[in-house]
Nucleic acid binder design. Structure first.
Length: 303
DNA sequence: AGCCACTGAATACAGCCAGG
DNA sequence: CCTGGCTGTATTCAGTGGCT
């Protein structure tokens, strides 16, 4: 295969067929005629020496070779689109830019309603692409522009990226309401008597609370470790377990007040939620506009 | 099972255009 | 002006599904 022969426009065609499974729809998407797409596909087939798609009824099914190319190609197309967007001066009212943000599942619950409402108001054509990227990959993603901003409790990134504090909050604990629960406060003994739900993986930001307990030589009985917060209410509703989580998160997960919430019986440092970006984008129009919006909308001490 | 209408890919051919 | 690459129109071919 001679890759020098590949006209990159052919990859656009290939990508469109991968998405549509249909040459006519792919042609519509690209603003070409169906034969033009067929011709391009023919050239790609010759260059790559693979049929790439085989017709199955009214559908063009990708071959295994085409499927192997799908993800890398999708990423490449997204990166190219993103790169082109960087060259266009940002005008909120008319921009169709896609902003990529990283946040946790609970971040989505807590931040997206506010952010989306603000966007609908002042940048109605802008799109958000929310990704949950492992903490150790966020810095790279911000640097290469694969992410615009990362929002969350991300102490590991504070030294390595530009950031702005949004708010600070303490931890509380939550369990299903039932007879026999203490009324207002939990003693440490009572707290430790519960089986605990631990939220977050070893890489996640909330794992730092584990460190705090370990340093104090406090050992909890972990009944379950889950990667996300959103499943927690469903688990607590069916068990007598307890979960330790940030106070704002409780408001989101306990809107009907069906769970009992207590202050922690130990003095554990809370979390500081920050918004992060890469220094290379300090003066970048669109990035600056978005982070200003995020800070204005989400910060408890607006910039 | 056979017929028919419909849909969609492939192909033949012509026109346009940029580069040499 | 010629050539090659690309695209569009018109047409053909093949598969599918409904109907009898």
């Amino acid at each position: 295969m001679d890759t020098n022969r590949i006209d990159l426009n052919l990859l656009r065609v290939f990508h469109a067929i991968l998405e549509e499974h249909n040459l006519t729809l792919a042609a519509n998407r690209l603003g070409l005629s169906q034969p033009a797409v067929s011709y391009s596909l023919g050239r790609l087939r010759a260059i790559l020496d693979d049929p790439l798609f085989v017709r199955n009824g009214n559908e063009m099914q990708p071959t295994s070779a085409a499927l192997e190319m799908r993800e890398p190609l999708r990423e490449a197309m997204a990166a190219a689109e993103h790169a082109l967007q960087l060259m266009v001066p940002f005008a909120a009212a008319t921009s169709t830019r896609v902003f990529r943000l990283s946040m946790s599942d609970i971040g989505e619950l807590a931040f997206l309603p506010t952010l989306c409402a603000a966007l609908a108001e002042c940048a109605p054509h802008v799109r958000l692409d929310i990704q949950s990227i492992p903490v150790d990959q966020i810095e790279d993603a911000l640097r290469v522009g694969r992410l615009d901003l990362a929002i969350g409790n991300l102490p590991a990134l504070v030294e390595r990226t530009r950031h702005q504090r949004l708010f600070h909050e303490d931890y509380v604990c939550m369990t299903r309401r039932r007879r026999g629960l203490p009324r207002r406060t939990l003693t440490l003994e009572q707290y430790l008597a519960f089986p605990h739900v631990l939220v977050g993986s070893l890489e996640s930001a909330h794992y730092q609370i584990e460190e705090s307990f370990r340093k104090r030589n406090i050992h909890r009985q972990i009944a379950l470790r889950v990667p996300h917060f959103t499943v927690v209410p469903h688990i607590l509703a069916h068990t007598d377990w307890i979960v330790t989580l940030p106070r704002r998160t409780v408001r989101l997960l306990n809107p009907a007040d069906e769970f009992a919430v207590y202050d922690l019986p130990v003095d554990i440092a809370g979390v500081t939620v920050t918004v992060h970006w890469h220094a290379d984008f300090d003066t970048h129009d669109a990035n600056r506009w978005l982070r200003t919006l995020v800070i204005t909308q989400l910060s408890d001490a607006p910039a």
